[in-house]
Design a protein around this nucleic acid. Structure first.
Lengths: 150, 150
DNA sequence: TTGAATGCAAAAAATTTGCATATTG
DNA sequence: CAATATGCAAATTTTTTGCATTCAA
């Protein structure tokens, strides 16, 4: 249940990383980044909606898609699959959390990543596979929904 | 790397479960079920393709979607998110495996679920949340791709 | 200045839905 | 027979692309 609300991205350092790769920081890109930060984790269209509500001029949907991709490419954001189809993006700096998604009510809660350390180590030893925890979504049932399922 | 190839679904028992719920077993449904079994895990359109290659008459795409949903509703199959967008279905009986998806080459390998037991227990204690292991996909990097990434 | 990014509109994909008809139990 | 499933075609929804134009560095 530990949902650590919105977070602000470190715009300056992301901008720097972008430039280091020959890419640029633009107002649109910054707004997308800020939206991802304030939403915590969100699908492309949720990001688009949030951006539309941030006061600035409307942003082309394709720009949202392209920016999420660009930001992920430079490691500023990453995604997981909290929902059935669309990917959910979150700030890379917000990734020290493990996402728990209830299949009953859809609620998303978070837990400290250290809970997977042991598991990640086992996978490493057993399969020489490095788990990307940022990308990990754990589905299941929260106490309330579990009870209803009976 | 333990990929336990295709599996055959227990048609009779699935049929029975369907009937118990007022649903029916149809040739189409059986073909979809068989395709999921032989593919191991597959997206709706991969299932559709497989069904088209099984010798029988072509199957309407909407029937594939509706059947995957129906089969999941009765617990015969379940899905995870191995790919970026589309869900991947697998037989429920094939779910004692944990899916490892390499973000580099896309390869999907499997591991015995018992590797997550400890983690699942920790989540249960810590968050009163029951992890649905069948639904768990672990993304990361296989040894080969990890090396290339440097 | 110049290549990256944007906006828009059009194209593709991926799903879903309505409805008449066929089938299962 | 009655109710569930199917097939098709049309409608949605979601994501991607092409291209002329704008803008960051």
């Amino acid at each position: 249940m530990t949902f650590e609300g919105p977070q602000s991205p470190d715009v300056a350092s992301v901008a720097e990383t972008l430039r280091a790769r020959g890419m640029r920081m633009t107002p649109q890109r910054e707004r997308v980044l800020a939206a991802v930060g304030s939403l915590g984790h969100a699908t492309p269209d949720a990001v688009a909606e949030a951006v539309d509500r941030d006061g600035g001029p409307p942003l082309s949907l394709s720009t949202v898609y392209r920016n999420l991709e660009a930001l992920e490419r430079v490691g500023a954001v990453s995604h997981t699959h909290l929902e059935h189809r669309a990917p959910s993006y979150h700030l890379a700096t917000h990734a020290n959390h493990l996402h728990l998604v209830c299949l009953g009510c859809g609620a998303v809660s978070e837990l400290p990543v250290r809970l997977v350390d042991g598991f990640a180590r086992a996978v490493m030893e057993r399969a020489a596979f490095v788990v990307d925890v940022r990308h990990m979504a754990v589905h299941g049932w929260c106490a309330a929904c579990e009870k209803e399922e009976l």
